[in-house]
Nucleic acid binder design. Structure first.
Lengths: 217, 217
DNA sequence: ACTTATATCCATCAATTGATGGAAACAATG
DNA sequence: CATTGTTTCCATCAATTGATGGATATAAGT
């Protein structure tokens, strides 16, 4: 028997799926408290009670949504793993940044939801977290920065999180940062990628060459 | 005649200042919509109408708060500028990271508010933005990465924003990231700094040596 | 065609929230 | 003490919001 979520994913034209899609964008834009069930229903073009009929409580809808995002990201990471096989580190990082940035740029609500999820304290307790910890380890393995999932050092995890954070902020903060940089959307995407690569690739690839660029021991 | 804000800053024991202080933390934790005037009044230990008496609308309080933060950050940047004078680039970056990370770590609500401000679409229109654009240029000058405020390249701005984003996320996401890294608070602060320095300093100081670490033209 | 199951809407509730008017307490001034 | 100005609280409003019961429509099964 398929879970409610799988059912929704199976038929994208179903009302459940439509609601979930709209909810993703709205929860992403306005956060859990800033989004009302009436906003969602209104944008879908249905009555609130229809929404409640399909998804039950607001919390349940939000939870389904987080689960959905979790699965989607996991797929994206698998895509990365597939593409980086047997490549040297520099190229791996390059590919990973490309794939993940493209994905998030095309689905900015994912980025928004992750940020809300990690930083906002005003959401229901019961809601499952987005599993960033797992993703971090996955990436470490994929980048060949650690031998096994249990072996990822604090340093490595922190560095991956740093990159991850950068990407998320650039995506979610587009409307904020793009005016500062004063460039168009495509140029912005290119700039993000370039910036990430420029900053990250050397740091990770240099690793054992020269550890001290003015850093105290 | 001092503005209401200056008045509040002058006497930290005043009710206005107390309210503002509590509001900073609560708006930081729960965002604009997640924070109610009753929450603020409750935590201060006063009636809501007393809050309205001192600050008027919720919006007005929030605006005052953003202005307050803006000024505080500006002071912090001045502190950086003072400390990096006549130092080589690597050391400048090092000092800047130390000062800003320490400041934000001691005032996490500032970081929270900036993130909410840049990413959340559900706040009143009229509220002034936090002036990240200005800060970016200031840092570029202080780091000697640009000659004049008008001369900061898109690349440089983007790189500074990347670092800035990293710091903010690490601070605001402490409750989220620290369990992932499984370290104590002090160790966390050290790790943030080390990570930032390790990733950022080489990228900025290498600048003209080798531009291509797997980056396509 | 009749019955049953599914899906949608209308009307409404109780709780929360932003906001205000007015009474009471308090302080300052004459 | 009397007067005036400031600060605080109580009571209350109107609007919004999460949520539900019940009527109604649409589709499916027999």
């Amino acid at each position: 028997m398929p879970s409610p979520l799988e059912k929704a994913r199976l038929n994208p034209d179903s009302m459940k799926a439509k609601i979930l899609g709209v909810a993703r964008k709205l929860f992403g834009d306005y956060g859990y408290n800033g989004t009302t069930t009436r906003m969602i229903a209104g944008k879908v073009g249905i009555d609130i009670s229809t929404l409640y009929y399909h998804w039950g409580e607001k919390q349940d809808l939000y939870e389904a949504l987080i689960t959905d995002i979790n699965e989607e990201i996991q797929l994206e990471f698998k895509e990365v793993e597939k593409n980086v096989k047997d490549k040297p580190l520099a190229e791996r990082l390059d590919i990973a940044i490309d794939i993940l940035t493209d994905y998030l740029f095309a689905h900015p609500e994912v980025s928004n939801l992750i940020l809300h999820d990690s930083f906002n304290k005003s959401k229901p307790e019961t809601v499952p977290d987005i599993k960033i910890g797992d993703f971090t380890s996955n990436i470490a393995i994929a980048m060949d920065l650690a031998k096994s999932r249990a072996n990822v050092s604090v340093q490595t995890k922190a560095r991956i999180l740093a990159v991850w954070n950068c990407v998320l902020n650039f995506i979610s903060g587009e409307s904020f940062f793009r005016p500062i940089l004063d460039i168009d959307r495509q140029h912005y995407l290119d700039t993000i990628k370039e910036t990430l690569k420029f900053i990250i690739v050397p740091a990770f690839t240099k690793e054992k060459k020269e550890e001290t660029y003015g850093i105290k021991p």
